[in-house]
Design a protein around this nucleic acid. Structure first.
Lengths: 302, 302
DNA sequence: ATAAACTATAAGCAAATACTTATGATATAA
DNA sequence: TTATATCATAAGTATTTGCTTATAGTTTAT
């Protein structure tokens, strides 16, 4: 079958009025135009959809069937229309966001804030490590990424939007815990728990100590930030983490921040998306929100 | 929105292969043709449905939505297709039939026969009086009608297909019940129970007696055949009915047929439909069946 | 650095589309 | 019978559609 949407339109007008001339009028056409469209439609269908008896026309059984499917198809097209309208607007929509596990706490908080402004927002939030984030960018599986270190090999737009202080942590009973202005060199003697090779914190940290000409003893490697903190608590060594992930552990005195010289290492959080990617209005709105408001809405205690 | 079905087709090919060139190949087109169709579609939608990042293309969120609706619409069109195929065939289908109340017994029987040949047949059978039948023909509310007397004022095709003998009935204890070859004139003295003015039997009967130069005493007028027979049984008068409606009453000796001269009045049953009406394959098949087989399948006892 | 794999864009064209006007045919209503 | 209301058909046409070929611009792979 090769019905056209035009034919559907004309058919519906005729079916409603059961009168070609009236339908023509409604469609701003002449009557023969309607006749022809219906004729072609009936040819396509292989049977009459209307029958004329005397002056009147009637829907045939086939015509009634056709009308039914017309309605459905039109309803779907209308629905599609409204779905698109909504996609264009910012009132509702869906946001695909992936964040570094280190960024999770404040991202969740900020997302909750954003949600107040976009009431019907739904979100897919993926929390993963740097490697996972890069893979997602590569395969275009996410719209926006929050990470501490934009990838190198990939063509992305990365915008810093908030400070990301990296601090040295220790268990409260560590012998350095009470000292002030600990010289950097003192850390050389300490064992360290570190994140995996590809992690953003690890990269930042290595770069920092390389520049300072210091070699650390990396005792243990951990694949997640939580695991690292647990290991530090357990006394397996010192750790370097984003200050943003420590709130709870500091309050409950499970960890302390060491007052090391030249710390914190001040880095930035970045909002990243692939160059050339089409951002939905929601994604754009969230991006703007983060760039402008994150600093006001997420303050670390001094 | 002004999407075309062509655009849907092309879109689906691209969405399936996520590759314009491949889609073009599948559609027996060149790649620019596909590019253009998609571009136009995206213009119609007001947003990109695909996005290209590097060599690869991906569906946007809008694209995924669109794909969803594509599927539904296509499914509906396919379904429509099969519905029409079935309407064209005779394997299944629906028949709108209206019959004179007098014709009901044998019509029901023949319909049951016909149904054996068309297993998935469904039927709307309307049993009504002549006036009702004519109204239905007039308003095109039925496909085929079985009646004893085609209407005058209406343009119909009427085909006789079976004899319709009208006989005179009486209660078994009537004084004429035992007589043979009763002269027509004897009926003038008898009270008669008759059908309503417009009924086929009434018309046939009046014409017959007019021609014979005989005036009957019409005592009572009944609006249905059953009511008439009951009235005759009750001794309100003689009646004239179609022989076809009497089987049960004769067997149980509730009524007898009088052996009147020149009786039975031999009339015909007609299959009637409005001139120019499109008959579905089912209706055509039923018509053929009745014209050819009714006489073999419904035999009155001699 | 080059080649290979993609899509985008431009120009041009044949065919189909979707009308219009004019006219004819038919059925109901006056 | 005549007028009126309806749909069908024919002929003609401007526009749109849907391509094609040719070419250019990217990005990735070698």
């Amino acid at each position: 079958m090769h019905v056209t949407l035009r034919q559907l339109k004309v058919f519906q007008a005729v079916a409603r009025h059961l009168n070609y001339s009236k339908a023509a009028e409604v469609l701003f056409l002449t009557q023969p135009a309607v006749s022809m469209q219906i004729k072609q439609l009936e040819d396509n269908c292989g049977m009459p959809l209307f029958e004329q008896i005397g002056k009147r026309i009637y829907l045939t059984d086939a015509g009634k069937e056709f009308e039914h499917y017309c309605r459905i198809i039109n309803a779907q097209l209308d629905e599609l229309d409204t779905v698109f309208e909504e996609l264009k607007g910012v009132e509702r929509g869906h946001l695909h966001l992936s964040v570094a596990s280190t960024a999770n706490p404040f991202c969740t908080h900020l997302l909750a804030e954003f949600r107040k402004r976009v009431p019907h927002l739904t979100v897919s939030l993926d929390v993963t490590n740097r490697k996972g984030l890069i893979r997602q960018l590569e395969y275009n599986e996410t719209e926006l990424v929050v990470m501490g270190q934009p990838p190198d090999g990939l063509d992305v737009d990365a915008e810093p939007f908030m400070e990301n202080p990296l601090v040295v942590i220790a268990p409260p009973d560590h012998r350095l815990a009470r000292e002030r202005s600990i010289p950097l060199e003192r850390l050389q003697d300490e064992p360290f728990v570190v994140r995996e090779q590809s992690s953003g914190t690890r990269i930042s940290m290595e770069r920092f100590f390389d520049d300072a000409g210091i070699r650390l003893q990396a005792s243990i490697e951990m694949r997640s930030n939580e695991a690292l903190q647990q290991a530090v608590q357990a006394g397996l060594g010192l750790g370097i983490v984003s200050r943003h992930t420590l709130e709870l552990e500091l309050e409950t005195h499970r960890l302390v921040i060491l007052d090391v010289e030249r710390f914190p290492i001040m880095r930035q959080w970045y909002l990243v998306h692939r160059t050339g990617k089409y951002l939905t209005p929601i994604a754009r709105a969230f991006r703007e929100f983060m760039l402008n408001e994150a600093n006001k809405l997420w303050k670390l205690p001094a």
